[in-house]
Nucleic acid binder design. Sequence first.
DNA 1: CGCCTATTTGATGTACATCAATAAAAGTGG
DNA 2: CCACTTTTATTGATGTACATCAAATAGGCG
Lengths: 255, 255
Amino acid sequence: MNIPDTATADKTISINALKISCSACSMHQLCLPMGLEDADIDRLDKIIGKRRRLERDEPLYKMGEPFRNLYAVRFGHFKTYQINVAGEAQITGFQMAGELLGMDAISGDRHHCDAVALEDSEVCEIPFAHLEDLFGHVPTLLRHFHRIMSREITREQNVMLLLGNMRAEQRFAVFLVNLSARYAARGYSPTRFQLRMSREDIGNYLGLTIESISRLLSRFKKLGLVHVDKREVELLEPARLKAMAAGTEQCSPMA
Amino acid sequence: MNIPDTATADKTISINALKISCSACSMHQLCLPMGLEDADIDRLDKIIGKRRRLERDEPLYKMGEPFRNLYAVRFGHFKTYQINVAGEAQITGFQMAGELLGMDAISGDRHHCDAVALEDSEVCEIPFAHLEDLFGHVPTLLRHFHRIMSREITREQNVMLLLGNMRAEQRFAVFLVNLSARYAARGYSPTRFQLRMSREDIGNYLGLTIESISRLLSRFKKLGLVHVDKREVELLEPARLKAMAAGTEQCSPMA
DNA sequence: CGCCTATTTGATGTACATCAATAAAAGTGG
DNA sequence: CCACTTTTATTGATGTACATCAAATAGGCG
């Protein structure tokens, strides 16, 4: 998997250090080093473990595995899901570049869910024990880490709201608008993007079936809200979609 | 609201300090000070703000209010919920003694949901800025705080699983078994306890209607799984309830 | 090209919601 | 303490949003 650096280790240290510098990473304004001064970024760089590449469908970690690292997505997309005794899964989130994986494992010392790459992707390994050591020396980092964990809590609360009392159409609008905002924050088009996950994954995440997702897409298409070709999506009426997501507007029944 | 301590301030410091000592609190093994040495508990005590009493239905905080404190429940019960534009609520959790409220407000600096007392209750105010200061000096406390936040994340993931792909009966079994375990951890009976929340609250939390909850209770009663009188519940067959919660057993259809 | 998987679309079923009525508590004021 | 209203809970009848079942279509890829 990883290029062995046995004899050349000494020579490549500086190169590797450069290679995995957070400041050189395009995601450093969204990711863990956000808001850090250069000196502190250097300290963070020193503890960041190796990068890890994953291909489509490859697991980053599995439920029950001992917890050692958090992971920051460098590029690509992931999904996290829990499996119950019956073998059914519930997808708990989709993660993209700059987002952190594994925080649910801190309590319990074991991973609490599975994380799988949706496409060829790369992550930074962040040894959590070292990160904890660093917290004592870089309060800004600690503050930001707490914000990230807190944001994960609010994100999940929003999903609870979605699953608990939204109709299918609103759920799907929320999903699209959320993706749009996250791509926008990364400098991508908020109106044109690719769905990295299957219809089945979307349905599972939203508490719906694949057929429902398919029908919703067809309906949104017919209403001129979106343009869809395979997994390529264009939001034609972002304002109306946002209104649907907020619950202030609803489109016609199934017809 | 609070007893003003103007002239007597100096004299009462020690008494107050004693009064709000974490080590004297019956919840200290479940709450923030868990696992701390006495010296560190003292440091924590020093930053803990005043206690606050709330009566039934009184809000502890409301969505949008600036975030200053976390709150530890000393006794009583709370619910937290989000409200959407349509004015509908989604309850995101019920909190009991020893549990922490407000972590979702850390990102954003404002409360992200409402918290309301379900009965006469008391909390400890924990000024978050001071807690952050303390983190640099008490690594054990920091570690434990991360575990608490992480546990909140996994709790919410479990609710997502519940809302996303469990049938009503299983949801309700999960709910009862969860309460049972939490009361057990606090030294109360795992089989006999009072529901502190209304049927409506339960339904809202579980993504069901009040009528469904009522029917489920009646059915569980008829099946001899529980004994119910008003809000007093006795779990007559905890093992079967656990099996239902796990999804390995299901009771008969509505009949 | 042919197999395999992903997606779409239609027909039917059902778990739970909604509507409606009653009953039982809980609070309120005299 | 007792009428009174108001809230909360139960139970039944009916409706519906979405699931399930089924079949067809379309890509992806060896």
